[in-house]
Design a protein around this nucleic acid. Structure first.
Length: 203
DNA sequence: GTTCCGATTTTCT
DNA sequence: GAAAATCGGAACA
C-alpha cells in the first residue's frame, strides 16, 4: 500500500469522464500518460508513446463495426475499462474503452517507453535491448504480462492495471492506422514525434 | 538496411 | 473456411 501511494503521488489517475469522449480525442490525450502493471509484487510501467482510435458503426476497421458480440461487448460498455483481444494466433493487444456506455469505442495502446520493471520486461520478452521490449502492441502486452484475464478490468479502480496522468508531449504525429485492409484513409493513429519507441517511423 | 513470409488460434461468415 | 488492430526470422542488398 505504501508503494501504491508513492507511485501515485503527483500523478493521479484519470477520472472516468476522461474516457467518455470522442475516441480519437482520447487517443491523442492519453499520449504521455503512464501505463502501470502490478504483478507478483513488482511494478512494470511505461510512458504511452503511440495509440490508435477505434470506434463502432462508423469505423469499418473496428471489431465493433458489425455490432456487439461476445468479444466486443466490453467496447460497448463503460469507458475506462481494459479491452484485451488475442490476434494472429500469437499476440494480445491492450485497449482502453472510450465513449459513453452503449456506444462502442476503444484506444489501442501501441507502444510504450519503458520506465519501471525493465529487468522483468527483459525476462518476459526474452530480449535484452530496450527498443525490443515495448515498441509494438504485441510486444508491450507480453512485456507487461497482459492477457485475456485482464479483459474487462476497470482501469479507474484496478490495482493490477491502470493509467496515471503524465506530461503532455511537445509534438504529436498523426497517421493512418497500422495493419488494416479497410478504412485505410482514416488518420486515427497518434504518436510522440521523434520518440524511439514508436513502433514505426514511416507510416 | 529492406522485404517477404510463416506461425497459430480466435472470431465471424 | 478465411482473415486477422503482429512479430520475428530469413533472404537479399
Amino acid at each position: 500500500m505504501i508503494i501504491f501511494r508513492v507511485l501515485s503521488a503527483g500523478m493521479p489517475r484519470f477520472p472516468r469522464g476522461f474516457f467518455a469522449r470522442y475516441t480519437p480525442e482520447v487517443a491523442k490525450d492519453i499520449l504521455g500518460s503512464v501505463l502501470v502493471r502490478r504483478i507478483g509484487g513488482k511494478v512494470l510501467s511505461g510512458r504511452i508513446v503511440e495509440t490508435e482510435a477505434y470506434r463502432g458503426s462508423d469505423d469499418p476497421a473496428s471489431h465493433a463495426f458489425r455490432g456487439m458480440s461476445e468479444r466486443t461487448q466490453v467496447m460497448f460498455g463503460k469507458p475506462g475499462f481494459a479491452y484485451v483481444y488475442f490476434i494472429y494466433g500469437n499476440h494480445y493487444s491492450l485497449n482502453v474503452t472510450t465513449e459513453a456506455e452503449g456506444e462502442a469505442g476503444a484506444v489501442l495502446v501501441r507502444a510504450l517507453a519503458p520506465l519501471r520493471g525493465i529487468v522483468e520486461m527483459r525476462a518476459n520478452r526474452g530480449k535484452e535491448r530496450l527498443i525490443d521490449l515495448t515498441s509494438g502492441p504485441g510486444k508491450l502486452a507480453k512485456a507487461l504480462v497482459i492477457d485475456r484475464s485482464l479483459n474487462g478490468e476497470d482501469l479507474i479502480n484496478s490495482k493490477k492495471l491502470f493509467l496515471l496522468r503524465g506530461e503532455k508531449p511537445e509534438r504529436i504525429g498523426v497517421s493512418r492506422r497500422i495493419g488494416l485492409s479497410v478504412a485505410q484513409e482514416t488518420e486515427w493513429r497518434y504518436y510522440v514525434e521523434g520518440d524511439p519507441f514508436v513502433s514505426r517511423q514511416n507510416a
